[in-house]
């Protein structure tokens, strides 16, 4: 029976890895374990190939719940794709919570090739959970604009360079020694990723709020649902990157306008690494013939004038790369 609750029939999308979970779902079939037909299975090669932005896209397009299933930890057909997936989804759930959508709508489960029964149980239980949560607030004729904006922004945030980079190198930061040849405490690494997530989300919201019409900090705070005190810091950085301009001063409040054009994806760091690299390359190319050592020195000095996209401080001789792994986080520094 498709679960019916006041006529609500949840649409659940399942991303199942080919080797364990999809086989587990097949086994549920072979063993004839009945489960509700709400699940729409999409086969992927590995749970690690599930793109976080696609998951948010799923919610934006009206999925009531999304289930990602992979091999049990240690069983991954591709060594550790499932652990990457788990890490990404953990961050994603926090991000979704910020938007106002219930994070319970996104779930990750381990299902092995011999757990047909478990698979059927998980699906049944998940359908129940989602039925209880009710329809996806952004789906249907009267979508909740706030959450929709939130999801749109969240999608931009996970797609953005910095958060994505940190999220995907988190395991390296935890397992490889940093620039001082010390291990980074995993809570600290965790905090860095979490902070990056909050920052990127806030910035994307600011960019969206100031799109098309100049806004004061107070207005931004209301529209983006962010505390006023946090906004100015982000605006300074976004102005630095040329993503926001100050158009006028109304009374004593400056007004800010986002430079993102209609139809353009929101990004707080548009091809930042590329910009960094290109500016260095152009500078070096325009130099007269110098030896390697001088070039290295110039590159270093140039880098100091740019911001590190991890800690976002200007790099300086006293820059404390306490969690940064030089060269690991940045493709430019070598």
């Amino acid at each position: 029976m498709e679960k019916e609750d006041n006529g609500f029939n949840p649409k659940i999308v399942g991303f199942l890895c080919n080797w364990c979970s999809y086989a587990g779902a097949d086994l549920a079939g072979v063993s004839r374990f009945i489960y509700p037909p709400n699940l729409r299975i999409i086969r992927v090669m590995c749970s690690g190939s599930v793109d976080p932005a696609v998951l948010i896209e799923g919610f934006l397009r009206g999925a009531d719940g999304i289930l990602v299933c992979g091999c049990h930890p240690g069983d991954c057909h591709y060594q550790d794709g499932n652990s990457h997936a788990a890490r990404r989804i953990e961050t994603l759930r926090k991000l979704i919570q910020l938007t106002g959508l219930e994070p319970e709508r996104l779930r990750m489960e381990w299902v092995s090739a011999s757990e047909g029964k478990r698979f059927a149980e998980i699906v049944t239980e998940f359908v129940d959970t989602v039925t209880e949560l009710g329809p996806n607030p952004v789906a249907g004729d009267a979508p909740d604009i706030d959450i929709m904006e939130g999801l749109y922004v969240a999608r931009s945030a996970v797609d953005d360079f910095r958060l994505s980079l940190l999220m995907n190198k988190e395991h390296l930061l935890e397992t490889k020694p940093n620039a001082f040849n010390r291990m980074n405490p995993s809570e600290k690494v965790h905090d860095v990723v979490e902070k990056a997530m909050l920052d990127e989300y806030a910035r994307c919201r600011i960019l969206l709020a100031t799109k098309g019409q100049p806004q004061s900090v107070k207005e931004i705070s209301e529209r983006a649902n962010l505390p006023e005190r946090e906004i100015l810091g982000h605006i300074v950085l976004l102005r630095d990157r040329g993503l926001v301009t100050m158009t006028e001063i109304r009374g004593i409040s400056p007004l800010y306008l986002s430079q993102i054009e209609e139809g353009q994806e929101i990004s707080t760091l548009p091809l930042w690494a590329k910009v960094q690299k290109e500016s260095i390359e152009t500078s070096i190319a325009s130099l007269p013939d110098v030896d390697e050592a001088t070039k290295k020195w110039i590159v270093r000095e140039l880098l100091l004038t740019l911001r590190c996209y991890n800690c976002e401080r200007r790099r300086s001789n006293v820059c404390h790369f306490s969690v940064c792994v030089r060269g690991l986080l940045s493709g430019v520094v070598e």
């Binding site: 690690g48 793109d51 976080p52 696609v54 896209e57 990457h84 980079l165």
Partner: peptide, 24 residues
């Protein structure tokens, strides 16, 4: 496996046959 495609910060990598547009 496509883990790199899902992790690429600039979305420069595509897993053939399971690309982002196909999945969407």
């Amino acid at each position: 496996c496509g883990t790199c495609a899902a992790g690429c910060p600039e979305r420069a990598i595509t897993l053939r046959h399971f690309s982002r547009d196909q999945i969407i």
